[in-house]
Amino acid sequence: MLRPRRDAACRCGAAALGLAHRAAGGPVSPSGGRGKALRASLLTLAAGGLGGFAFHLAGLPAAWISGALLLTLALALARVDVQVPKPIEIASYVVLGTSMGTALTPDLVAQATTWPVSMAFLTVSVFCTMAGSMLYFRHVARWSLETAFYASAPGAFSAVVGMAAESGADLRRVAFAQTVRLFLLVAALPNILGAAGLASAQVAAPPQRGGWAEVALLLAACAACGLLAGRVRMPGGVIVGALLASAALHLAGLSTATLPMALLVPAFVVLGCNVGVRFRGTSLYTVREMTLVSVVGFVVSAGISAVFAVLAALATNDDPGKLLTAFAPGALEAMTALGFALGYDPAFMSAHHLFRFAGLSVALPLMARLLFAVREGR
Rank of each mutant, 00 (worst) to 15 (best):
F372M: 14
A37G: 10
L354S: 11
L338I: 03
A351I: 14
G253T: 08
V80R: 10
L122T: 08
L73S: 07
L60W: 12
C222Y: 08
S294D: 01
A302W: 11
R22M: 15
R138G: 02
L182A: 13
S118I: 11
V215I: 14
A229K: 09
S305N: 08
W143L: 06
V269W: 02
A68F: 06
G97D: 04
P27I: 00
P346D: 08
A368C: 04
A312C: 07
V215D: 06
R378E: 13
G51M: 05
T316H: 10
L244K: 00
A195F: 10
A148D: 02
L227Q: 10
Y285I: 13
A120K: 09
G18Y: 09
V232R: 00
M261H: 07
S246I: 01
A24H: 06
L108M: 14
Q83H: 00
S246H: 14
D319T: 15
L360Y: 01
G197Q: 07
V84I: 06
T286V: 09
R34C: 10
V238L: 09
V275P: 04
L182Y: 01
F340A: 03
E166V: 14
V277Q: 08
G226M: 10
H56Y: 12
G226E: 00
P85W: 03
S133F: 04
L96Y: 02
C12W: 12
A68H: 10
F268T: 02
L171W: 04
A103I: 01
A148F: 01
T113N: 11
V174K: 04
F372W: 08
A46D: 07
P346C: 05
V161M: 15
V124T: 07
R181H: 02
P207T: 12
